[in-house]
Design a protein around this nucleic acid. Structure first.
Length: 232
DNA sequence: AGATGATCATTA
DNA sequence: TAATGATCATCT
């Protein structure tokens, strides 16, 4: 199994947003095969057991801080990096994971201080043409772009976030399904369905429940792609 | 076909 | 266990 940490050359963190974007744009049109070769790392046949492979490779290319720290990928720039699998027609093929859903100690947090708002404040989207029939090596990077929520988009995000968090505060986490939320949904985020974490139950007691995460619906991210590439 | 619920690797 | 990086597998 290829190890990024041992095999990749050191890439310095970008010093500015412009440098980051320029670096990202230089990847447009290139395949995973080319990029992996440049970084002297192998390519998995499929992503079934390496779901985050593409994202990790982009982190390497762009000089993101590695590791599992709960902060933005480029803290000094206030930018979060997200790869997004797209069809040849430019449609998002998957939802986008944003952040863990907090289930306990909710008193201090509001939208302004939420992990969702922080992560989405400024995102470098890196679209990858990644239909399932395309071998991983042949998948090609499309044109990356920077995005920040418009006032209307942020209002939608806030509304969904507040609706979800109210239910969680009321001890109703186990009633929430992926059907809820216009653009921001809550889905499981765990190694498997037997994992448990703590939450508040219907009677205010502590219960054990499946860890959840916030995800952007693909309908929404497809819209961002259309906005940027002028496909409206 | 599109979306939901489940799942996989790695690090701290 | 919890956070990072996400896509898979299955159902409607």
């Amino acid at each position: 199994m290829p190890s990024f940490q041992s095999l990749s050359p050191n890439v310095e963190p970008p010093r500015s947003e412009a440098e980051l974007l320029q670096r990202a744009l230089s990847l447009a049109g290139r395949s995973f095969a080319e990029i992996a070769q440049q970084h002297q790392t192998g390519i998995p046949q499929h992503l079934r057991k390496q779901k985050g492979w593409g994202g990790m490779l982009m982190e390497l290319c762009l000089g993101a801080s590695a590791g599992s720290k709960p902060e933005q990928d480029f803290p000094h720039l206030g930018v979060e990096l997200k790869t997004i699998p797209i069809s040849t027609k430019g449609r998002a093929l998957e939802s986008t994971y944003v952040a863990i859903t907090p289930l306990l100690e909710l008193k201090g947090i509001d939208w302004q201080h939420s992990n969702v708002r922080l992560k989405l404040a400024k995102v470098l989207w890196v679209p990858i043409i990644a239909e399932r029939g395309i071998p991983v090596a042949e998948r090609v990077i499309s044109t990356p772009f920077l995005w920040s929520p418009s006032p209307a988009q942020e209002a939608m995000l806030q509304k969904d976030w507040e609706d979800h968090m109210e239910l969680i505060s009321l001890g109703k986490i186990d009633t929430i399904t992926a059907h809820q939320g216009e653009i921001l949904q809550i889905r499981p985020k765990a190694a498997n369905s037997k994992v448990r974490t703590q939450a508040t139950g219907p009677n205010g007691q502590i219960i054990a429940t499946l860890p959840r995460g916030f995800y952007l619906r693909s309908r929404f991210t497809s819209g961002l792609l259309a906005d940027h590439f002028g496909l409206n």
